[in-house]
Simulated scan of single mutants.
Amino acid sequence: MIFFYACQQKKEDNAHETAAAIPDASCHGNIPTRPSGKGPAQRYAAAADVSHKNMVWIEGGEFWMGAADREGRPDEYPQHQVKVNGFWMDATEVTNAQFAAFVEATGYVTTAERAPDWEELRKQVPPGTPKPHDSLLVAASLVFVVPAQPVSLHNVSRWWSWRKGANWRQPQGPGSSIAGKENHPVVQVSWEDAAAYARWAGKRLPTEAEWEYAARGGQQREPHPWGDEDVEQGKPKANTWQGEFPVNDIGWDRYSGLAPVRSFAPNAFGLYDMAGNVWEWCADRYGPYPQSPLAGSSQAQPSMQRQVEERVLRGGSYLCHASYCKGYRVTARMHAFPDTSLEHTGFRCATSE
């Protein structure tokens, strides 16, 4: 998927808001990015021992990775055989309570809580892009805003908005809170934040192959962690969007917005929310699969040279709907810069030890 992001002043709604220029709308690739907030390296001691509490052991093996049907986007092909060794994986997405313990123990400051650094930002935008006004370079993150009326699905800026002060403690900005949501997945965390938590916990982020192998739960060809039944058939199986996206989530699955972890049945490996709820960061840099026709083509590369490589996200979120994307499919891929944080992005950890 080819796309790029550029900082610019919005001419509608608010002249001091950063907007994303994105040529094609798809949650598999075209999510807005945050101006980088890199700061001094944060050093801290890792947890003394790796705990396998609330983790699941997954026996290694071979499987066919990638889409076998016609539902996939170009970067999900070709299906290819991959072998993974046995590993432990968190049964759930990392929760607000778990992330809060990490922050309390280390004093870690997340990407969204740091003011953007123009020298880092300029690596991600087209050459010659002028420096944004200082009023734009403030600690902020992207929040989901329900449009007042139906909008084109080719303009994600109609439902994503930069909001000053939005971060993991205040996912929707000032006035919002995670109080009472300790068991919800932490969001507004970048790949850098997720990797920092994993190091502190003595773990790591799962590889993309490990993630898909785990999500399949031992199945080889089925498109979802639960099998081939459509997400809206039968009983609720995952936290996704029902109704008209992005203006009306009717909440047939009992949730409009994030759901607490373990709200739906686990897959055959005992893993929860491997579809829907929040997109999950993986360790891998994003790129085409081996033998993909995208390899080496202009479609596989950004439209400009970047000094920062994107990372893979998997699993879909509560915003996924068939009319817009089917990110809840086990082969669906999304990619973003490692300093990107959004209201529907989280993670879980893995370890080989």
Rank of each mutant, 00 (worst) to 15 (best):
A195K: 11
A198Q: 05
A198E: 04
R199A: 15
R199W: 12
W200G: 09
W200D: 04
W200N: 08
A201V: 05
A201T: 02
A201S: 14
G202L: 10
K203M: 14
K203L: 12
R204E: 13
R204A: 09
L205P: 03
L205K: 01
L205V: 05
L205Q: 01
L205T: 02
E208D: 15
A209V: 13
E210L: 07
A214K: 01
A214H: 04
R216K: 14
G218P: 00
G218I: 00
Q220I: 12
R221K: 11
H224Y: 15
H224S: 05
H224K: 11
H224E: 07
G227H: 04
D230L: 13
E232G: 09
E232N: 13
E232Y: 07
G234L: 02
K235R: 13
K235Q: 14
K235Y: 09
P236R: 02
P236T: 02
P236W: 04
K237H: 09
K237E: 05
A238Y: 00
T240P: 02
T240Q: 01
T240R: 05
W241A: 01
Q242F: 08
E244V: 12
N248Q: 12
N248D: 06
D249C: 02
D249V: 00
W252K: 12
D253P: 06
R254C: 07
R254M: 09
R254V: 03
Y255W: 14
G257S: 08
L258K: 04
A259E: 03
V261W: 03
R262A: 13
P266R: 06
P266M: 10
N267Q: 04
N267I: 07
N267K: 04
F269T: 00
G270P: 15
Y272L: 03
D273V: 00
G276K: 05
N277F: 08
V278N: 00
V278Q: 00
W279V: 10
W281L: 12
D284C: 10
R285C: 14
P288N: 13
P288I: 14
P288C: 15
Q291D: 15
S292P: 02
L294R: 08
A295R: 15
G296F: 02
G296E: 00
S297P: 01
Q299A: 13
A300W: 08
P302Y: 12
Q307N: 11
Q307G: 12
V308S: 03
V308C: 06
V308R: 03
E309S: 14
E309V: 14
E310G: 10
R314L: 06
S317D: 03
S317Q: 02
S323Y: 01
S323M: 01
S323W: 00
S323E: 10
